[in-house]
């Protein structure tokens, strides 16, 4: 009986701590999110590359000059000009390496190019950036999932 009460108590503590942990982005790491645990829309992201691409294009950079370059890069990507899209993304990286939006696009571009390991590495690299949003983190985890 005592064991049963202990298990109930511990379960409640565990659930509360889990909630608190999810509210604090700092403790979400690249391998701490399992994509399968999320909603069906995430499953759709994994299975439909066009849907995923649309979501990536919606991620804006904070820096306006970087955003301008990302718009160019997106246009090249849509037109199938992958080398030019990559050149623009590298240009953006030379301005700042702290924008998750750039790495997300690089991860996506490599996925489109069929370079799965590199796509995953770009996603892992982006997860080290401090100021990325939970949604960006989730999208990056999609690339970790896509590559395995």
């Amino acid at each position: 009986m005592n064991n049963f009460r202990l298990i109930i108590f511990l379960s409640v503590v565990f659930v509360l701590l889990s909630c608190a942990s999810n509210q604090n982005n700092k403790y979400i790491t690249s391998d701490s999110i399992s994509v399968e645990e999320f909603s069906s829309s995430v499953e759709l992201l994994v299975s439909d590359i066009n849907f995923l691409e649309d979501e990536i294009f919606k991620i804006n950079a904070k820096n306006p000059s970087v955003q301008r370059i990302l718009v160019n890069s997106d246009a090249y990507l849509k037109a199938g000009k992958l080398i030019q899209a990559n050149s623009e993304l590298e240009r953006a990286l030379r301005i700042t390496k702290k924008e998750g939006a750039i790495y997300l696009r690089l991860a996506h571009l490599r996925l489109v190019q069929g370079l799965l390991d590199e796509s995953k590495s770009f996603a892992s690299r982006a997860l080290l950036i401090n100021e990325i949003s939970s949604w960006e983190r989730l999208l990056l985890n999609v690339y970790l999932k896509s590559s395995t």
Partner: peptide, 15 residues
């Protein structure tokens, strides 16, 4: 562009 040398990356060790 005739040839490009893109940025390549490979995670070799955990950070």
């Amino acid at each position: 562009i005739d040839l490009s040398y893109p940025y390549k990356i490979e995670q070799r060790i955990r950070p």
